[in-house]
Computed example of a mutant assay.
Amino acid sequence: MGERASEGEAREWGATAWRILTAVRERSPLIQCITNYVSMDLMANTLLAAGASPAMLHCLQEIPDFTPHAQALCINVGTLSPDWIPSMKTAAELATRLGKPWVLDPVAASASEFRLRACLDLVQLKPVVLRGNASEILALSNASLGPSKGVDSSHRSVDAVEAAKSLAQGSGSVIAVSGAVDIITDGQRVVGVKNGVAMLQKITAAGCAVTALIAAFVAVDPLHALEATASALSIFGLAAEMGMDMARGPASLRIHLIDSLHGLDQAAVFSRVSITSMS
């Protein structure tokens, strides 16, 4: 009985992930990314490979004209500087006011007091989804400074489950914790995504890229942010698995991941998406 239920759950998640990916390909949502210098290229190419339309636009003067036309907004604080914060806040406030989903990636949230405060201020502006590694989610949940390993995580995603649930309940955001198993929670439900390869840790901005993909998935299914987030993480991880079959190292994996994401078909998604309920 349990095995059949598990197979049924797998089929349901496969169908959900395929439905959302197909919607992205058909509708090509415009995703505005206010992100860091390191990640712009990979984020834009990930969105294009998935079928979305990226706009790497962060100029404060352009936001009132441009942001209303975007279907979703992705904010990433990787190379944060004081000049960028007004753009981030203005775009987030405008997106929220217009009912457009936006996603926050709090890169290295606990690395400095300046960075932590900026991230906490952005959380107050109600991102629909917040995705980070375990260390970043723990830092935001605890709202205190602690030892950090830069943009890398010194904690496992499972270490942050309760912190993620608490942060979700307090912020109203869906929280995604990247790790060997990605954890996604809305404060009540918890699901795990097991797709992916360890070599992704050797590709700079891979986490940033999957956050952009989450924004695209949420853009086409904003009423089901948890399902869209889990599906995006699984699809990205699946593309990495398929790319790894052809890769010889991090550089070639980066290329093959983009190719695999572009070429993903229904059979691969239905048979290889690995998402399970954990609550």
Rank of each mutant, 00 (worst) to 15 (best):
A232N: 12
L60R: 12
A109Q: 08
G243Y: 07
A44M: 05
E26G: 12
L130D: 00
L30Y: 02
A70L: 07
D265K: 11
V190D: 00
A225K: 02
I203F: 03
A17Q: 08
I20S: 01
A216R: 04
N142C: 15
T90K: 04
A228F: 05
E26L: 14
L167N: 02
I75Q: 15
S148A: 15
T90M: 08
V24I: 10
A52V: 03
A70P: 03
T67M: 06
K126D: 05
G187F: 13
R248N: 11
L138C: 10
I275P: 00
M40W: 05
A109V: 03
P222G: 08
A49K: 15
P222W: 06
A91D: 13
A228N: 04
E136R: 03
A239T: 05
I31Y: 00
R27A: 11
G150M: 08
E7W: 08
L223T: 12
M40F: 07
R272K: 15
N45V: 00
L226G: 01
A215D: 13
A251F: 06
G207C: 09
L80W: 01
L226T: 01
V193K: 06
C74F: 15
V103N: 02
D221W: 11
I258R: 04
E227Y: 02
D83E: 14
G207E: 02
E93L: 09
H262C: 14
V103G: 00
G249A: 10
F236M: 07
I63D: 06
G170R: 14
L116W: 06
I75A: 15
W13V: 02
L122Y: 06
M199D: 02
S157G: 09
D245N: 14
S135M: 08
L104M: 05
V161M: 09
S173G: 08
D152R: 15
K149T: 09
S39Q: 10
H256Y: 15
T90H: 07
A219D: 11
I75R: 15
L47Y: 04
A198C: 10
K165Y: 06
R115Q: 11
I175W: 00
T96S: 12
P106K: 01
E3I: 09
V191M: 05
R156V: 01
I75H: 15
E12M: 14
I175V: 15
N195S: 09
Q188I: 02
N45L: 06
A134H: 03
G207V: 08
A164C: 06
P54N: 09
L104S: 03
A232T: 09
S277R: 12
A230S: 07
G51V: 05
A134F: 04
V107G: 07
G249H: 10
G192Y: 00
M40C: 13
C33M: 11
R4Y: 13
I275R: 02
N45E: 10
V191I: 13
V218A: 03
S252K: 06
S274E: 14
L125G: 07
M278I: 10
E3Y: 09
R189H: 08
P86V: 01
L60Y: 11
R189F: 00
H69C: 11
A163I: 05
